[in-house]
Amino acid sequence: MAILEKKTYKGLTEETAIQLVKELELFPVHAELTAREIGDGNLNYVFRIASEENSVIIKQALPYAKVVGESWPLTLKRAKIEADALVKHGEYVPAFVPKVFRTDEDLAITIMEDLSHLKIARTGLIEGEYYPNLAKHIGQYLAKTLFHTSDFALHPFEKKRLASAFSNPELCKITEDLVFTDPFFNIDTNDYEPELQSDVEEIWNHTELKIAAAKIKQSFLTEAEALLHGDLHTGSIFASEEETKVIDPEFAFYGPIGFDVGQFFAHLVFQVIVRKGEDREIIVNQIDEVWQEFYSVFSELWKSKGVDPFTKVDGYREVFLAKVFDDAIGVVGCELIRRTIGLSHVKDLDGIEDSAVRLKAKRAALSLGTNLILKKASIKTIKQFITTIEEFTA
């Protein structure tokens, strides 16, 4: 992966994006190039540069959130963190992340493999598509990236070096606020239908729930277990029937392993909430499959690659993975609540046109999320987790 020469930051346009790839000689000198800005996110520009034979993606971080403007400044360092996370995770799961061709920390850009032949998994799932390898691939992605960047696989000096390199306080603060704090308080950035006011106030007034959420937040703040993706939802995954590619790790940092697992669980749960019949059962089975694959692959790596002496102690692996599962269930609960009444929603719910159906789905998400946060200690197995999901979403 080459690093470009030092430049002064300036937002790219379609014209300057073409000029940049020409300067970098990423295409034949006489190639006719087209550029299109294809980003639909809030924090970045995304350009697709193409010739008749080839194409690349240029992603450039913005110094502010588009939804708010320059009054909400954001660090450009996240572009380097994202590129470095793609490269680091690519060491362990090259099939599941895009290739990185060039980076430039000053321009806050990453030039990477074009995945336009795939579809964003959230979009496909909402449209009813079936991705038979999604759960297996994500289970492997989680197990391999999280194990190999943990103390179980690394010398303590290397682990601490990586934890320092991936310090990401600005974007972690966004997660701390939007996932673990704001939805539980009367904060102006919360966003929900007026019909949910009583449901929301019940959450705000629920002291036991808030204490339980605070404990989950404390784990996120203090437990540097492995290099997380940090925002692993179905909108951060490209998929087809054969392929799965995880993108957008700009929230990457060292945190609790259960956070990434719980984030992905939660966004499958949204699909369980909105689906019926056999289509619903497909997603339920994928929740089971992703955990089984994660548990199996992580366990095998623990046995074959573990460097910590305690990985050889009978029973410790099971204890640790039970802790990961418990953390994940708490994260699911927080994510369900925040995506329903917090600042950033999901199309799975907001895209339901019938208001009565949409409100019913959102109340199910709030009730399930509350129950998972309060009762996570009693949910010991993936079967118990699925049973709880079905109880609140039937």
Rank of each mutant, 00 (worst) to 15 (best):
Asn168Cys: 03
Leu209Ala: 03
Asp106Cys: 03
Val307Lys: 08
Ile329Ser: 05
Glu176Gly: 14
Glu127Ala: 10
Val246Pro: 02
Ala83Trp: 02
Pro256Met: 09
Ala165Cys: 03
Ile3His: 12
Pro169Gly: 08
Val68His: 11
Leu374Lys: 15
His117Tyr: 05
Glu225Asn: 13
Asn168Leu: 03
Asp191Ile: 01
Leu196Ala: 09
Phe253Pro: 02
Val313Arg: 10
Glu193Tyr: 09
Thr149Met: 09
Ala83Cys: 06
Thr149Ala: 14
Lys99Ile: 07
Phe47Asp: 03
Asp231Ser: 12
Lys119Leu: 13
Ile287Ala: 06
Gly351Leu: 13
Tyr92Thr: 08
Val93Phe: 07
Gly235Glu: 11
Ser344Trp: 00
Phe320Gln: 11
Ile287Trp: 09
Leu74Arg: 05
Glu129Thr: 08
Gln60Cys: 11
Ser378Pro: 00
Asp114Asn: 12
His229Gln: 08
Ile109Leu: 02
Phe157Thr: 13
Ala394Gln: 12
Asp177Asn: 06
Glu25His: 14
Ala252Leu: 07
Gly351Asn: 12
Phe166Gly: 13
Ile49His: 02
Val29Trp: 01
Val29Phe: 03
Leu228Gln: 09
Leu62Pro: 05
Phe298Ile: 06
Phe147His: 13
Glu70Ala: 13
Glu105Lys: 14
Thr34His: 11
Glu37Leu: 12
Asp114His: 02
Leu321Ser: 09
Ala135Leu: 06
Lys66Ile: 00
Trp302Cys: 00
Ile174Glu: 04
Glu223Leu: 15
Gln286Glu: 15
Pro169Thr: 06
Met1Asn: 11
Val97Asn: 07
Asp279Val: 01
Gly262Pro: 03
Thr16Cys: 12
Phe185Ile: 05
Ala50Cys: 00
Lys6Ile: 01
Lys376His: 14
Glu300Ser: 14
Gln19Glu: 15
Glu278Pro: 06
Ile283Ser: 07
Ile337Tyr: 07
Phe166Thr: 10
Leu43Val: 15
Lys66Leu: 00
Pro249Ala: 09
Leu134Ile: 05
Glu113Gln: 15
Asn186Leu: 08
Val272Lys: 04
Gly69Asp: 00
Lys210Asp: 09
Ile211Phe: 09
Glu15Asn: 07
Glu391Ile: 01
Phe166Val: 04
Glu14Thr: 00
Ile38Gly: 00
Ala361Trp: 03
Ile283Tyr: 01
Asp326Phe: 10
Thr8Leu: 10
Ser240Trp: 13
Glu225His: 13
Thr16Phe: 08
Val357Trp: 06
Lys6Asn: 13
Lys245Tyr: 02
Glu53Gln: 13
Phe147Met: 06
Leu196Val: 02
Val346Leu: 04
Asp314Ser: 15
Thr175Glu: 04
Asp191Leu: 04
Leu368Gln: 02
Glu170Val: 06
Val87Ile: 15
Leu33Asp: 04
Arg36Thr: 05
Leu33Thr: 01
Ile379Ser: 01
Ala17Ile: 02
Ile187Phe: 05
Lys376Met: 05
Ser167Asp: 10
Ala266Glu: 06
Gly128Ile: 01
Leu221Val: 11
Thr16Met: 04
Lys99Asp: 10
Leu142Val: 00
Lys88Gly: 03
Ile373Ala: 04
Glu293Gly: 08
Val346Thr: 07
Ala61Thr: 03
Arg102His: 10
Arg358Gly: 10
